[in-house]
């Protein structure tokens, strides 16, 4: 197999960039933050992360930032995912498996509907920097 080089990546990116620009020119205003501490990873956060990336790609969403964070102190409900969408309350979902991750993208980010039975918490004050 021919080795994929950084040059190949730049070329691939160039190809994708055109398609991306046609889809959406707005800035990234949505954030999904996955808890990737030891507790999150033990509970399957890597699968959740991959499912989120795939679902966001499938929907062609270019305005979503995908980030991770360490343990948020909610180890009992890992994997946790915090979702920030303008005009909607910021929520932390708990027990987010791959299927729920897909729901987060399709229902919350695209459909602007909260997934009531998976809402765990609002971000606690001590882990959120004041704007």
């Amino acid at each position: 197999m021919a080795k994929l080089t950084l040059e190949d990546l730049r070329r691939l990116r160039g190809e994708k960039q055109k398609a991306m620009e046609m889809r959406d020119a707005s800035n990234k205003d949505v954030q999904v933050i996955v808890g990737m501490g030891t507790c999150g990873i033990a509970a399957g956060a890597k699968d959740t992360f991959t499912a989120l990336v795939n679902a966001i790609s499938d929907k062609g969403l270019t305005n979503v930032l995908i980030r991770q964070t360490g343990c948020m102190g909610l180890c009992h409900s890992e994997p946790t995912v915090e979702v920030v969408v303008p005009g909607m309350p910021t929520v932390i979902y708990g027990n987010v498996d791959a299927a729920t991750a897909k729901d987060v993208v399709e229902k919350h980010i695209v459909g602007h509907q909260l997934i009531d039975d998976k809402i765990l918490d609002r971000p606690s004050i001590d882990i959120v920097k004041e704007a």
């Binding site: 950084l6 730049r10 691939l12 990116r13 994708k16 990336v53 795939n54 969403l61 270019t62 979503v64």
Partner: peptide, 14 residues
């Protein structure tokens, strides 16, 4: 090379 590691495209390419 991939244009940032916080977008779905960038993460997928990386």
């Amino acid at each position: 090379a991939v244009g940032g590691l916080e977008s779905a495209e960038g993460i997928t390419l990386a």
